[in-house]
Design a binder for these strands. Structure first.
Lengths: 201, 201
DNA sequence: TAAAAAATATAACACTGTTAGCAAAATTAC
DNA sequence: GTAATTTTGCTAACAGTGTTATATTTTTTA
C-alpha cells in the first residue's frame, strides 16, 4: 500500500524535471529567455504545476544559485588541499575560482547577476575610452618612476580597475550586509595600498 | 519662418522630457520597474512617440550609461589633478571611483548591470558561508606566518575576493573584447601575486 | 458504486516591449 | 480661403511575461 510513497516519488520526479529542464533552457538559450511557460512546455505539464513545487520563478533561480555556491566551495576546497603552503593555496584558489567562473558561466552569471542586458553595451560605450585613458596615463607615470619600468600599463590598469569594481560590485550586492562603511573604506585603502606597493615595488 | 526650427526645438524638448522622466522613475523606483508605459504616462504622450525618439528601451538606458561614464571620467580627472605624485593620484582616483559608485548607485548599477534580481539573494545563500570559510581559513594561516600577524583576515578576504570577482565580472562583460585569454591569466597572476606580497609583506 | 480528496488544466489578470493602422492636426499648394 | 499633402500622434493590437482564481479531471476513500 505504498500509495503515499509513490505519490511522493512522483512529486520529486516532477520537481527534478523542472530544475533539469530549466537548466537545459538556461544553458542553451540563456537565463534571460527562461520562462515559466517554457519550463511547463518542456516538462509537459501545465503552468500552475510549477507553482506547486516552487513559490515563484525566483525560487527556481535561487536553487541554482545555491548549487553554484556549493560547487564553487567544493572546487576551492580541492584547490586548497592540492597545496601545503598557505600562499600557494591562495594562488591555487584564485585559479580555481577563475576556472569555475569561466567554465560555468551560467552559474556565475546567475550567482552574481551578471550577463544581463547592459553587459555587451559596456564595450560599446565610447565614453569609456576617456575613463580608461585617465587611469592608464597615471599608471604609466607610476610605472616610469618605479623600480620595474617595464611593467605593462594595460595589464596593471585592468588589475587596478578589477580591485575597484570587484569591491563596489560585491558591496552593493551585500547592502544589508555586515560590512560597515568604515570597514569598506579600510578594505579599499588596504587593497589599493597593496596594488601600489606591488606596482612600484 | 522658423517653423522647422520650432519643430526641431519641440522635438528636442520631448526627447529631453523622456530622459528626464526616465531618470526620475529610475531613481525613485529603480531600473527594474522602469517601463515605456510609465515614461509615456509621465511625459503625457502616447507610447509610440517614445519610439520616434529612441529605437527601443535599451537605447534609452544606453544614453544613461554613456552619461555615467562621462561623469565618472570627469570625477577621476579631478581626482588626478588634485595630486602631483602618481602614486597619490592612484589613491585619489580609487577614492573618487568609490565615491561615484556609491553616490550615484543608479548610474553605476546601470553601467555594470548590477542591482538586478539575484543581488539581494547573494547574502541569503547559506552555501556562501562554506565558500567564505574556505578562503578565510587559508588567509588566516597566511597571516599567521607573515610579518604582520595582526592583519584582519575578514578584511583581507574581502580584498582577495574583490580582486577575483572584479576581474571575472569585467572580463565577462567585455567578452568580445580585446583581452586575450593569455593576458587574462597574466592579469590574474599579477594581481594575486601583488595581494599575497602585500599580505605577507 | 458514490462521495471526498487530490492532481491537473483552462482561462484570465495585469503587466511588459513593440508596431501596424488610423485619425487629427499642421503645413503647403493652388 | 479652400483643398491636397505631409507630419504628428493616438488607438488598438500582437506576442510575450509572471502569477492565480476557477474549473475539471483523475484518483483515492468510504
Amino acid at each position: 500500500m505504498g500509495v503515499a510513497e509513490r505519490k511522493q516519488r512522483h512529486k520529486e520526479q516532477v520537481k527534478a524535471a523542472i530544475l533539469e529542464k530549466a537548466w537545459q533552457i538556461a544553458t542553451t538559450e540563456g537565463w534571460q529567455t527562461l520562462s515559466i511557460r517554457k519550463i511547463a512546455d518542456a516538462i509537459e505539464y501545465s503552468i500552475p504545476v510549477i507553482y506547486t513545487h516552487f513559490e515563484n520563478k525566483e525560487a527556481i533561480l535561487f536553487e541554482f544559485t545555491r548549487k553554484g555556491f556549493s560547487i564553487l566551495s567544493e572546487r576551492l576546497k580541492e584547490a586548497k588541499e592540492s597545496r601545503q603552503e598557505s600562499c600557494q593555496q591562495l594562488d591555487a584558489i584564485a585559479k580555481a575560482y577563475f576556472k569555475f567562473a569561466f567554465g560555468n558561466k551560467e552559474y556565475y552569471q546567475l550567482m552574481f547577476g551578471l550577463g544581463m542586458p547592459p553587459c555587451e553595451t559596456v564595450s560599446r560605450v565610447a565614453e569609456m575610452k576617456e575613463f580608461s585613458d585617465v587611469i592608464i596615463s597615471v599608471i604609466q607615470s607610476a610605472i616610469q618612476g618605479s623600480k620595474n619600468p617595464d611593467a605593462d600599463a594595460f595589464l596593471k590598469f585592468h588589475a587596478y580597475w578589477s580591485i575597484l569594481h570587484g569591491q563596489v560590485s560585491l558591496q552593493m550586492m551585500n547592502n544589508n550586509g555586515n560590512v560597515s562603511n568604515d570597514l569598506k573604506e579600510k578594505i579599499l585603502e588596504d587593497s589599493i595600498a597593496g596594488f601600489i606597493k606591488a606596482l612600484v615595488s
